[in-house]
Design a protein around this nucleic acid. Structure first.
Lengths: 215, 215, 215, 215
DNA sequence: CATGAATGAGACTTCATTCAT
DNA sequence: AATGAATGAAGTCTCATTCAT
C-alpha cells in the first residue's frame, strides 16, 4: 500500500489510481442496482453483478466485503439520497408545519428511487435491512406530530410513535403500488395520502349499526 | 394395495398410514413455522426444518417438493386462516357497514398469525408471494368502499382501488409493529387505526403556511 | 414362519401362501421386464417397478435382494429361455451339422426375447452382465466349429474361439437391428447371416489393387 | 476485460488464462478417460474424476455441465479420432476397393481407442450414445458395398444396409474381445475378419442334412 | 489495481433399504 | 406375506471467496 517507489510521481499516480478506483466502484454500484432491481436480491450472484459491470469477479472484493456489504452500501446510499431529497425541502420549515410539504417530497423521492425500494423489499433480510428506512420515515413523522403537540396544534392524546409508524406504512405502500401501476404521479399520490389522513373517508363508514366485534 | 378382499382389514391399514402421514406432515409444518419465523426464510435450510421436526431429511421430500413448495403451503394456509378468521366475523354483515368490525377482526387475525406474516416478509420472494395477502386485504377494503359509494355513504370521487391499497399498507404495518413491540393489544390497535382513518390528525397539521412543493 | 397354529390347516394354507407368493413374484418380474425395457435399467427405480406391479415397495425385498439381484434373475431367466428355445431345436442334432438350424433358432429366440436383450444392453453393467449371454452363444459356436474340425469338415487352421466370438457379435447385432427396424423377419435374418458367412461378399471386394496398409 | 488499452499487455493475460484453462480441461478429460474405463460410467462419480485429476470438485463444472456432458465430449472426441484415423487411410482410395484397407485401419483404431469403446459400452445410455459410433461404421460399409454394386463388383441382390450393420457388429466385437484378451494384434484381427467375410467357414458347416427349421 | 480460474463448504435431492403395523 | 412411511447415505451442483499472475 502507499507505493513509495517514486516520490515525485506518487501524487499524480495515486490520483489516477484513486479516480480509477472510484470509477470501478461506481460501475459496480450501478450494475448492482440494475441487476438487483431486475432479478431480486436472492437470485443475484456476485458473478451476475461483475458481469454486468464488465469487471473481473475478484474486483468485487476489492471494493466490498461481500454481498451483504454491497447491499448495505446500496441501501445506505439510497436511504441517504432519499433523506437528502426530502430534508432539502423540509429542513428549512418549522417541523410542526412541514407535513404536507414532506409528504409531497417523500412521494417524489420514493418514486425516483423506487428501484432501491424494490431491492430492499426483495432482499429477504428485509425486516432487518429495510426496517431502517421505514424507521427514518417514522421518526420524522413522530417528530412532526410531537412538534405539533408541543405547539398545541395536535391533541396530546395521540400516540405519536404508533401513529407515525402506521402512517409510514401507508406512505411506503405507495412505493409498492408503483411497482405495479404507473399512475398516479407522485404529486397526486401525495395529495391522495393527505386527503386520506385528513379524514376523507366518511364517518358513516365507521359507524357500525350493530357491532359484533366486542367479544 | 391388494388387501381389499376384506373391507374391515384394508381400511384400517391405509387409515393408519394416512393418519401417520398427516401427523408427520403437521410436525413438519409446525417445525417449519417455528424455524422460519425465527431464522428467516433465506437462512433456513431443509435440514434445519427436519431437525426441528425430528424427522429424517428425506421425509421432507415425501411431503413437499422443495422449500418453495413448503413456503407456498405455509403462506397459503396462513392466508386462508386469516381470511376465515376475518370473513367469519364480517360475512354476515352488510358490506358497506362492515369496516370497523373488519378492522378489529383483521387486527386480531394479524396478531394471532404474526409469525406467518414475519415469514412472508422475510421470504425474499416477498413481492411475489406476499403481495397476494395484501391484495386480499386491499380487495376487501375496495369492495367495502365501493359498496359505501353505491349506498351514497361515501363520495364517488374517492379512488377506491388506490385508497384501499394505501389503507391495507397501514393495516399491515401493524403486523410489523408487533414484530418489535408487545403493545398495544389488537383491540386497541384497531381502534387506533379507525381513529386515524376518521381524521384524528388535526387539519392544522396539513395547513402549510408556505408550500414550496408546487414545482 | 411355518405357522403351526392349526396342524390340519397347515398344508393347504402354506400352499395358498406359496401360490400367492409365486404370483406376486411373477407380477414383479413381469412389471420389471416392461418398465426396464421401456425406461432403461439405469433410469428405473425400485418404486417404478413396484408401482407397475401394483404391490408395496417393501414387497420387492421379500422377493429380491436388490435391483442387481432382480436384474440377475431377469437376465438369467431370459438367457435360460433363449438357451432352451435354441437347444430344444439343436440338441438332438449332431453338433457339427447344427449350425444353420441353430442360427435360425437363435434368430427366432432373439426376436422373441428382444425386450430382455434391450434391458441387458441398457443395464450399464453391460460388459459384466451381458457378456455372459454372448459367451453362451460364442461357446456354442466354438463347439460347433471345433466339432466340424474334428470331423474334418473344417480346416484346423481356423481360430475357433476368436471366430466364434466374432460371429456371435454379428448375430447379436441382429437383436440391435430389431431395436430400430421391423424387417426382416427372424427367418430371413437367419438366412441373411448364413449367406454372409458362406462368403456372399465377392472376392473382388477384398482384393485391394494397391494396399497401403502393410505398414 | 478492460485491459484492451495495450494489446501487448492484454493478450498475454488472457492467453495465460486460456492456456491454463485448457490444461485443466485436458487433465480432467484424461483423468475421466482413465477412471471411466476402469470403473465403468455408472460407478464413477464426479468426485472420483476430480480426485483423479487432482482438482477441486467445482472445477469440473467450470468445464462441463454434468457427467453426461463430459461423456458426450469424451465419446464425440473419441469417435472423431476413430473417424480421422480410418478416413486418413481410406479417403484417398476408390471406395469400392477400400474395404480390406479400411478393415485394417478400423482394427488399428479400435485397438488404439479401446478405452473409449469400453466407456461407451458401459455408459448405460449405450444404445443412444454408442449407436452413433456403430452407425458411422455401418454407413461406411454400406457405401463401400453400394459402390461395389455400382461397379458390378458385387451382386445387386445384397441387402447393403442390413449386411453393413451385421458386419459392423462383427467388427465391433473385436473391440470387446480386446477387453478380455491381449491377442491377436490388430493386424491379425483384421486379417481374421477379412478371411471370415470371404467365406472361410466351409460350406459343409452350412449344409444341414436334415433341416427342421422350416417352421 | 485488476483478473478469472480454481476451490470446497454446504445446500439440495434421490432412492435403496428398513421396519412397525 | 404385504405394506408404504420413514430414513439417511451418497451424489449432484452452486457460488462466495481466494490467489497466482
Amino acid at each position: 500500500m502507499m507505493q513509495m517507489t517514486s516520490t515525485q510521481a506518487g501524487a499524480p499516480t495515486s490520483n489516477r489510481h484513486a479516480r480509477q478506483r472510484t470509477r470501478t466502484r461506481e460501475r459496480l454500484l450501478e450494475a448492482a442496482r440494475d441487476v438487483l432491481a431486475r432479478e431480486g436480491a436472492q437470485a443475484t450472484t456476485i458473478a451476475d453483478i461483475t458481469r454486468a459491470a464488465d469487471v473481473g469477479v475478484g474486483t468485487f472484493y476489492l471494493h466490498f466485503r461481500d454481498k451483504d456489504d454491497l447491499l448495505h452500501h446500496l441501501l445506505e446510499e439510497g436511504l441517504e439520497r432519499l433523506r437528502e431529497d426530502v430534508s432539502g425541502v423540509v429542513a428549512p420549515m418549522p417541523l410542526a408545519r412541514s407535513l404536507p410539504t414532506a409528504i409531497h417530497a417523500i412521494c417524489d423521492a420514493l418514486f425516483t428511487h423506487r428501484a432501491i425500494i424494490r431491492i430492499a423489499y426483495s432482499s429477504g433480510s428485509f425486516v432487518d435491512l429495510t426496517r431502517r428506512g421505514q424507521e427514518m420515515l417514522a421518526t420524522y413523522l413522530r417528530c412532526a406530530i410531537e412538534a405539533a403537540q408541543e405547539e398545541g396544534l395536535a391533541s396530546k392524546s395521540i400516540d405519536a410513535p404508533l401513529v407515525a409508524d402506521l402512517v409510514s406504512g401507508m406512505i411506503l405502500q405507495s412505493a409498492l403500488w408503483w411497482g405495479e401501476h404507473a399512475e398516479p404521479a407522485p404529486d397526486r399520490m401525495a395529495r391522495q395520502i393527505i386527503t386520506l389522513l385528513r379524514g376523507e373517508l366518511p364517518a358513516a363508514l365507521f359507524e357500525a349499526s350493530f357491532q359484533r366485534d366486542i367479544s
